[in-house]
Simulated scan of single mutants.
Amino acid sequence: MRMRWEAFLKEIQERGEYSSPEEAERTARVVLALLGAHLVGDVRAELADRLPETCALVLLNPLPAHEPLSPERFVRASAAWIEGATERTATWDVSALLSVIADLAGDDDLLDRILLQLPPGYDLLFGRPMPS
C-alpha cells in the first residue's frame, strides 16, 4: 500500500528532527535518487509502489550509478547534494530516510532483497543491523 506524501514527510521530519517539511523533502529527494541508482528490477519497483508517487518517480528515474557506492561514499555523495550538509549531518539525514524506508518494507523480505543489492554495511544506515 502506497504511503501518503504528508505522512511520509512527517515521518522523515520527526526522525531527522528537521524544522520544516521542506528540509525533510530535500533530504528525501537526494537520498532516494542515490538509492534508486543502486537498486534494480523488481526490488526497486516494489519499493516504489510503497512510496508516495512523487518519491516513487525520484526512485525510479535516477541517474545510473557508475559503480556501487560503499555506505561511506553514499553518505559523502548525499552530503555533496544536501545544502549545508557535512558528512556527519548527512549520516543523520541518510539514516532518517532509510529507517522510514525500512519500516515501509515491512515484515516481508523486501528489506533483505534491498540490502542484497547494496554493498555491505547499509544495514546500519537502515537502522537494521544484521547479525554477523
Rank of each mutant, 00 (worst) to 15 (best):
D112S: 13
L35M: 05
Q13Y: 00
G106N: 05
I114L: 08
A85Q: 08
G121K: 08
T89R: 10
L63W: 11
V40F: 03
V58E: 02
A79Y: 00
D93N: 11
W92R: 12
A85R: 12
I114N: 12
L110D: 15
G84F: 03
L51C: 09
I114K: 06
L98F: 13
G41P: 03
R50T: 14
L115Q: 09
R26A: 13
V58Y: 07
E14L: 03
L59D: 02
P21F: 05
V75Q: 00
V58I: 14
T27G: 01
E46G: 04
E67S: 12
R26I: 04
L69I: 02
L34N: 02
Y122S: 09
R15G: 01
L111W: 11
D49C: 05
G121L: 11
E46R: 10
T91F: 08
A102D: 15
T89E: 15
L104A: 09
L104M: 07
R88P: 06
G106E: 08
V31D: 06
L47S: 08
L57G: 09
L39T: 00
E72P: 04
E46D: 14
N61P: 05
A24K: 01
L115W: 09
R15D: 02
G106M: 14
E17K: 13
P21V: 08
A65K: 00
R73M: 04
A90G: 02
A85G: 06
E67Q: 05
T91W: 12
R50N: 11
L57E: 15
E14S: 08
L69N: 04
R44P: 00
L34P: 00
P71T: 09
E72S: 10
G106H: 04
P120G: 10
E83S: 13
G84C: 06
H66K: 13
V40R: 11
D107P: 08
A79W: 00
E87G: 14
I82R: 09
E87P: 09
D107G: 13
W92Y: 15
A37C: 00
L32K: 03
P68W: 05
V58F: 05
N61T: 12
P64G: 09
E14Q: 13
P62R: 11
A105I: 13
A48G: 09
A65C: 02
G84D: 07
A48R: 09
L116H: 05
G36D: 03
G41R: 03
H66A: 08
A85Y: 08
V75P: 00
L60H: 05
L118I: 12
V30P: 04
R26G: 10
S20Y: 06
S78Y: 06
E23L: 02
P21K: 10
S78A: 13
A56F: 03
V30F: 02
A48T: 05
W81L: 08
D107M: 14
C55S: 12
A33T: 07
A80L: 03
D49Y: 05
P119Q: 10
L69C: 00
V94P: 00
L59K: 01
L34R: 01
P64L: 14
L118M: 06
L116W: 13
R44H: 02
A79H: 04
S20T: 11
A56I: 07
